[in-house]
């Protein structure tokens, strides 16, 4: 079976999530304010009687905090700790991994282990389980 990944952009940077984790993409959506949020969470996305934590942009390498609430799209992904929403200002689509180039990546702390190239652009592949573990166990 061909492995597939979902690609999106935030603030000009490319990110990728494995299709197995990708639930859906929401255009805008209602993000309600919540006081005393844990670090790294921008708000709560309310979607069809579900509350989904919207992560802030500073968890994505190279993007400063504060873009979580401003992003037009929310990429919903499944993790070991439940669904979370990632901010995105452009979605690219789903592509076969075999159509992407493996790029030698500099090891980074946290959840981003590999980089892929697609249509001349670099995408950082998010390891979502590690990502959420860093929130729960900072």
């Amino acid at each position: 079976m061909i492995g597939k990944i979902g690609l999106f952009h935030l603030q000009g940077r490319g990110y990728a999530v494995p299709l197995g984790h990708l639930l859906r993409v929401v255009d805008n959506g209602y993000v309600a304010p919540l006081p005393l949020l844990p670090a790294g969470v921008a708000g709560m996305l309310v979607l069809e009687n579900q509350i989904i934590p919207l992560l802030d942009s500073d968890w994505l390498s190279g993007v400063p905090a504060g873009w979580g609430l401003r992003a037009e799209f929310k990429v919903l992904v499944a993790t070991e700790y439940g669904s979370v929403a990632l901010p995105a200002d452009q979605t690219v689509g789903i592509v076969a991994e075999s159509r992407c180039l493996q790029i030698d990546s500099v090891p980074r702390a946290g959840f981003m282990a590999t980089d892929l190239g697609y249509c001349g652009k670099r995408y950082q592949v998010l390891n979502l389980d590690l990502f959420n573990m860093s929130l729960v166990h900072p």
Partner: peptide, 13 residues
């Protein structure tokens, strides 16, 4: 609705 685990926080709430 219950708050999801990631939005729960110990301490004053």
């Amino acid at each position: 609705l219950q708050l999801p685990h990631l939005l729960q926080r110990t301490g004053w709430r």
